[in-house]
Every structure is written in structure tokens, then in C-alpha cells.
Simulated assay, not measured.
Amino acid sequence: MTKSAIAGICSLGLLLAAGAYAGSAVASDPLTLAEYQQIKAGSSEKVLFRYASTCQQEDKSQPGDGYPITWTCYGADGTSSAVFFYSEGVLFSKAETGLQ
């Protein structure tokens, strides 16, 4: 293998690592109170993920199962959170604790 090929592979590896780091920074985007207030009843799950990516699905139901789906999203301090309840892909209830 030539030196230029090795250099190219190393450069590609660095680019992939940088992309993974940037992706993890986006994935840790906490939910704020202002964002929470923008998410209205009747909106889809897509609206939720526009504002925060720190959400975890609390159950393994699928939208077509007929059971409500619960998402918990976390604030910047790690202890504040919001819970969103979806039925058939539509938000019907939400609650928050300590978001700023």
C-alpha cells in the first residue's frame, strides 16, 4: 500500500470520527421549557423530534398497535423532564417537571 493511500484512509477515518462526534452533540440536545411549550396537542411525533433528541420511548408499542406511546425527554440539568403521550401518532397529553 502506498503512503498516499494510507494517508487517504487516515483522512477518511478522521472525517468519520468528526462526523460521529458532531452527531453525538446533536443527539444530546436537551429540551427547554420554551420548546416544550411549542409542542401542542394534536401534533405528530415528528414535531417532538424537531425540538429535542434526548427522548426515550418508554414502551415498545408501535403506532399501529392501538396502545398509547409514551416519550420522556430530558432537560439540560439531567433531572428535569417532560413526558409526551401519543395515540395513533398524535399527541394527546403532556407534562413537564423543572424544565427551564
Score class of each variant (00 low, 15 high):
residue 81 S to T: 01
residue 68 P to L: 01
residue 85 F to V: 08
residue 46 K to W: 04
residue 84 F to T: 07
residue 95 A to W: 11
residue 89 G to A: 12
residue 23 G to L: 08
residue 10 C to N: 02
residue 84 F to G: 10
residue 40 K to W: 06
residue 58 E to W: 10
residue 73 C to L: 14
residue 66 G to M: 00
residue 54 T to F: 04
residue 49 F to W: 11
residue 83 V to C: 07
residue 48 L to M: 03
residue 86 Y to N: 03
residue 29 D to K: 01
residue 15 L to G: 12
residue 93 S to M: 02
residue 21 Y to M: 02
residue 33 L to E: 09
residue 36 Y to A: 06
residue 60 K to R: 03
residue 23 G to D: 11
residue 76 A to E: 13
residue 95 A to D: 15
residue 6 I to A: 14
residue 76 A to W: 09
residue 6 I to Q: 13
residue 56 Q to M: 05
residue 34 A to E: 15
residue 48 L to R: 02
residue 79 T to H: 02
residue 34 A to M: 12
residue 17 A to G: 04
residue 88 E to F: 04
residue 59 D to S: 13
residue 42 G to P: 06
residue 32 T to K: 06
residue 94 K to H: 08
residue 57 Q to C: 04
residue 61 S to C: 11
residue 33 L to W: 05
residue 51 Y to S: 14
residue 54 T to D: 12
residue 55 C to Y: 10
residue 25 A to K: 06
residue 19 G to T: 08
residue 96 E to L: 11
residue 20 A to Q: 01
residue 9 I to Q: 00
residue 54 T to R: 07
residue 73 C to D: 15
residue 93 S to I: 06
residue 30 P to T: 12
residue 46 K to Q: 00
residue 28 S to Y: 03
residue 49 F to N: 13
residue 12 L to P: 02
residue 23 G to F: 05
residue 85 F to D: 10
residue 77 D to K: 03
residue 40 K to L: 08
residue 77 D to W: 09
residue 14 L to I: 14
residue 51 Y to E: 15
residue 77 D to C: 06
residue 37 Q to K: 14
residue 91 L to I: 08
residue 41 A to E: 15
residue 80 S to F: 01
residue 77 D to Q: 09
residue 14 L to Q: 11
residue 96 E to M: 13
residue 75 G to L: 09
residue 22 A to K: 05
residue 27 A to F: 03
residue 8 G to Q: 05
residue 16 L to W: 05
residue 57 Q to R: 11
residue 63 P to Y: 06
residue 32 T to F: 12
residue 78 G to F: 06
residue 10 C to M: 09
residue 51 Y to R: 10
residue 15 L to T: 12
residue 39 I to D: 07
residue 77 D to A: 00
residue 43 S to K: 09
residue 31 L to A: 11
residue 61 S to L: 12
residue 88 E to R: 05
residue 88 E to S: 08
residue 46 K to I: 06
residue 14 L to G: 14
residue 83 V to W: 01
residue 89 G to W: 00
residue 69 I to Q: 05
residue 8 G to I: 07
residue 26 V to C: 04
residue 68 P to D: 00
residue 64 G to S: 02
residue 79 T to Y: 02
residue 77 D to T: 07
residue 18 A to S: 13
residue 70 T to S: 10
residue 13 G to T: 10
residue 60 K to P: 09
residue 42 G to V: 09
residue 52 A to C: 14
residue 30 P to Q: 12
residue 16 L to R: 05
residue 14 L to D: 13
residue 79 T to R: 00
residue 55 C to S: 14
residue 51 Y to M: 14
